[in-house]
Structure formats: structure tokens, C-alpha cells
Design a protein around this nucleic acid. Structure first.
Lengths: 204, 204
DNA sequence: GACCAGAGTTACCGGTCAGTAACATCAACG
DNA sequence: CGTTGATGTTACTGACCGGTAACTCTGGTC
């Protein structure tokens, strides 16, 4: 079960690999994603992360803290993705938007559960839950990224296109979760491209 | 607190009003909707319904049973809504589709929490949970209704339009829940109409 | 070797939750 | 009046869950 760094104990030791804290967050993200936040107890997380509850509580003041940390890591991943999209086709916003569609579709098909942030918003109904600020913040910056990209493409109504695309994406993820993979979410790419070209036609 | 039928105890008595069972389902639907399924215990439901846990368990074998009953009532409401849409503008599918957009937008604006079925799918992650069949069934018939309506309107690709509209709607509800009322969901009507006219333009 | 911070172990607390048992009440109906 | 069926009441079980206390262990540093 336990990895005791079987080889190479001499020089790499200074850079500690797989610290409990990182394993806890990674495990929590995985379990929260698969089974929901409220279904998973801290004991389960700690055990699955190969550690124990006390260590978990030494790093995170509460389960809510851990939840927020997980969502913030999601936020970082999202930011990384936008960087990769920009870097994928420099100075070609149209291709970048296609790359966004491709990645989003990949996300819809490969992942039966929806967006972690949206799911958290469903599960954490307390109006003052600390996670709500994180969720709102990430979704907001995500939308700004998408608007910027649509504007760079040069459509007449970049905000409206970004609205439509983000709702299509959000809807596809939640639809796949309710109806299954053969439902409307299966045509996400075609719909997105149809909407994009519809908006593009109106400008040129 | 308790209503003891203060007046009119003579003739209406035979038709029992507000039976515990109905109050339980109505209360459960309300509380599940507002606070989520997992946050609400059976005790809370029973008390809020003006009854007690034992009576609840005499009518429903388990909490999961009650959940399914609630979702099935949602299904009945949805079916009623489709009937009303059809009756609202007989023989005018285009107006019926606009009525659908209007009602859906109303739903998005007035209701901070999303669709009960989609939310239930998020919360109940067990693959074999009895509620999942209900959810899938309702969403499927809903989609069929929408496809039929789009076909009646006479667009070239009714399935794709129905896909797009249902995803926009689904996305709007979940987006409003995560980002708030000022996010992309605020432009749901404009987006829907834009998509509808884009699909309609391609046919004529 | 002394020290110390991080991590593991065990046990516990208080609360909540789904579900049940046993008994009391009450209204309708014959 | 007596029966019956639905409901109310109270108390309970067993499991789980978030969080804490106290102690031990270990690996690195000076």
C-alpha cells in the first residue's frame, strides 16, 4: 500500500514527493467529483489518501476549508487550460475558439459527472457558505475569458455568443449527468459550431 | 400552529382536505428544492408538514421512496405544462415555442435553484438509485416534446434545435445557480430567439 | 545524542440521521 | 356502542459524521 520511495533516496529527498497535504487535496477532489461533496466523509478522504483524519485536520481547519481548497485548485486548472488554449494557436482566435469547443466536448463526453463548481453550488445550499464565493469567482473569470475570445474572433455580439456557448457547455454537462451520454449533450460540438457560424455570419 | 378546520365541519368533511400524505409530498418537494435532498432529514419534512415521522414512514417505505414520489410529481407537473403550452396557442407551433421560451425564462428568473431533476442527479450519485430512472425518463419525454414542437414549427433540423434549446435552458438554470442572476442566464430569451431564428432562416 | 516538527494511532465526544416499536388518540361507520 | 383504520406521541436503535485530545513514532537538523 505505502510507497516508501523504493529507489533514489539520495538526492531527490530534499524535494519531498507526495506530501500528505497534496494527496489529501487530490483524493478529495477525486472523491468529491465522483460521489458528491456531501456523500464523502473526511474519514473516507483521509483513508483513501493513505493518511488519517488528524493529519487532515492539521492542514485544513474544517471540511469546508478542504472543499474551498479543492475548488480553488479547480480554478487554477481552469486558468491553466485557458493559457494552453491561447498558446495552442497563437494569433488565431478562431482556431482558439475551436480548440475551446474541442476541449469542452472532450470534457462532456469523458466525464459523466458535471462541473465540480456547478455541482458544489447544487450541494452547498447555505447562502453564506465560503465555497460560494469561490464558485462565483471562477465562473465569472471563465466567462470573461470566453467573451475576450469571442471578441477577438470578431463577431458582432461577443457577449451574447459567449453567453450562448457557456450555457450550451454548462447545459451539456448537466444534461449528460441527467439523461446520459446519448442525450442532447452528444451534439454539443455541432450546436456550438452552428451557433458560432450563426453569429459570425451576422458580422461579415 | 395547527389548523383544526375552524369552520365548516358539516358537509365538506367527507372530502378530506390536506391529507398528511399530500402535505408530506408537497413539503418534501419544497424543502428538497430549496435546500437539497441530502440536507433535509425526514424529521424536518414531517414536522414542516405538520405531521410526524411515523406517519411519513406509513406512507413511504423509505426516504428514497419519498424522493421518487416527489420527482414523479415533478414529472406530472411538467406534463401539465406541456399541455398548457399546446392549449395556449392551438395550431400555432411558432407561438407555442415562444410560449415555451417565455415560461422557461420565467423559470430561470424566478427560481434561484435549478431544476429539481438535474439537482437530484447531482446529489444522488449511486448508479442504481431508483430516482435515476425517474430523472432519465422525465428528461427524455421532455426532449421528445420539444423536438415535436420544433418539428411542427418546420425548421430543417428539429432535433438539433431542440438539443440547443434544451441545453440553453438547462445551462441557464445551472448558471443562475452558480454565477447568479446577472450572469449569462439573464440573456436566455435573447439567445433562444437568436438560435430559433438562425435555425428558421436556414429552412425557408 | 538532543531536539523538534510533521505524521500516525487510538479513542473519544456530541450531534444527526434513517428507520422501528409500542402505545395513545380520534374520527368515521356499522 | 364497539370496532376499525388512520394518525399522533414518545422513545429508542445503530450507524455515521465532523471534530478533538493525548500519545507515539519517525526522520531530519544542529
Amino acid at each position: 500500500m505505502s510507497e516508501k520511495s523504493p529507489v533514489l533516496n539520495a538526492p531527490v529527498q530534499s524535494c519531498r514527493i507526495s506530501r500528505p497535504r497534496e494527496r489529501i487535496v487530490a483524493t478529495a477532489r477525486d472523491l468529491f467529483h465522483k460521489f458528491g461533496i456531501r456523500s464523502i466523509g473526511v474519514d473516507t478522504i483521509a483513508e483513501a489518501a493513505g493518511t488519517n483524519k488528524m493529519t487532515l485536520y492539521r492542514h485544513f481547519g474544517s471540511k469546508d476549508d478542504l472543499i474551498c481548497e479543492c475548488l480553488q485548485e479547480v480554478a487554477r486548472d481552469v486558468e491553466t487550460m485557458w493559457g494552453e488554449i491561447t498558446a495552442s494557436n497563437p494569433n488565431d482566435p478562431r482556431a482558439q475558439l475551436q480548440e475551446w469547443v474541442r476541449r469542452s466536448a472532450e470534457c462532456v463526453v469523458n466525464d459523466g459527472r458535471g462541473c465540480d463548481l456547478a455541482n458544489a453550488a447544487v450541494e452547498l445550499t447555505e447562502a453564506d457558505h465560503p465555497a460560494r464565493k469561490v464558485i462565483e469567482g471562477v465562473k465569472r473569470t471563465y466567462y470573461i475569458h470566453l467573451v475576450d475570445l469571442c471578441r477577438a474572433v470578431g463577431v458582432a455580439q461577443p457577449e451574447l455568443l459567449a453567453d450562448a456557448l457557456s450555457l450550451l457547455f454548462e447545459g451539456a454537462r448537466v444534461s449528460r449527468q441527467s439523461v446520459g451520454a446519448e442525450g442532447p449533450s452528444a451534439r454539443f460540438v455541432r450546436m456550438s459550431e452552428a451557433v458560432i457560424s450563426a453569429f459570425a455570419d451576422r458580422t461579415h
